[in-house]
Design a protein around this nucleic acid. Structure first.
Lengths: 147, 147
DNA sequence: CCGAGTGCTTACGTTAACGTCAACATGGTT
DNA sequence: AACCATGTTGACGTTAACGTAAGCACTCGG
């Protein structure tokens, strides 16, 4: 897939900047609608630069979008996701107490996620039991019908 | 709480039946609203008997409600939950092919849940990294400020 | 028999998370 | 200049999952 990777790019690529992506690129890449992406922006989850009126997304933006979708897959609301995304900021210059605060928020988020995971594991366990019950019933039927 | 439990019940209790619960009992027990419980019924997730016009829930119904809430905690929609609840039915008399089918559905559901769990674990991993980054930054600051 | 309490139904309101549609603006191509 | 693809901003529609409110029925203690 990456075999087509010489320096064939038309040479007009601005040298200082990272690669930028259009909105449709992102939409296709992640299999979501343009509307959804703009919606996330409305909600403050994304803030792409504007180039000539259009939205231009950096790698960081792509990562953020990935986190958004992962959050959704996990069952979080956009509000919760926004909450989490704020933990992924720069904090390069953060004051100590601010960093402590962030760590606290992260810990809280992690325990919430852990709770959710435990719920899932419980369901998996219960489903496993149901499954083996069914298997037992099936085996019994087969002993009657074939043995 | 259950200390008031002689056979003081007015004697009109039909002898054949298991214990039944009222809707408010369930609501309080699970900390949800009456409206929510009736809503789940509207959606076909619950089907309590009617006694004298009122809803009467059996232990099985309580279990189902528990599963519903667990499903919600996991981030599933009511539709998905309904899908799963159907796997918990009686199947006592099920035909063999029917049972096979159910096992298949259960397997599918389990892999879906597993996917979700993996998503959660991924997020937990990433958050853990962010957390340790912050910790490092904090330690550095402390070395500057205090050491 | 009456009022309080409990429950039921019907209907409308609400929030989140988008989808859909209309009406432009722009940039490149022919 | 005409056209088309791509993109933008509203505005309105929609679905899920309830909450809230109104009004009727039943039942039980006094």
């Amino acid at each position: 897939m990456n075999a087509t990777r010489r320096q064939a790019v038309p040479a007009v690529t601005p040298p200082s900047d990272d690669e930028l992506y259009g909105i449709t690129e992102l939409a296709q890449e992640y299999g979501i609608s343009l509307r959804a992406i703009r919606f996330y922006e409305d909600k403050g989850l994304l803030a792409p630069r504007r180039i000539n009126g259009g939205r231009a997304y950096t790698r960081r933006d792509r990562v953020r979008l990935g986190l958004i979708l992962r959050g959704k897959a996990v069952g979080m609301s956009l509000a919760e996701i926004e909450h989490i995304l704020s933990l992924y900021g720069d904090h390069g210059e953060g004051h100590a107490t601010q960093l402590e605060y962030l760590v606290g928020r992260i810990d809280a988020t992690m325990t919430e996620l852990d709770t959710r995971r435990r719920h899932i594991e419980a369901m998996l366990g219960e489903l496993g039991e149901v499954r083996s019950q069914l298997k037992k019933a099936l085996a019994a039927k087969r002993r009657l019908g074939k043995g």
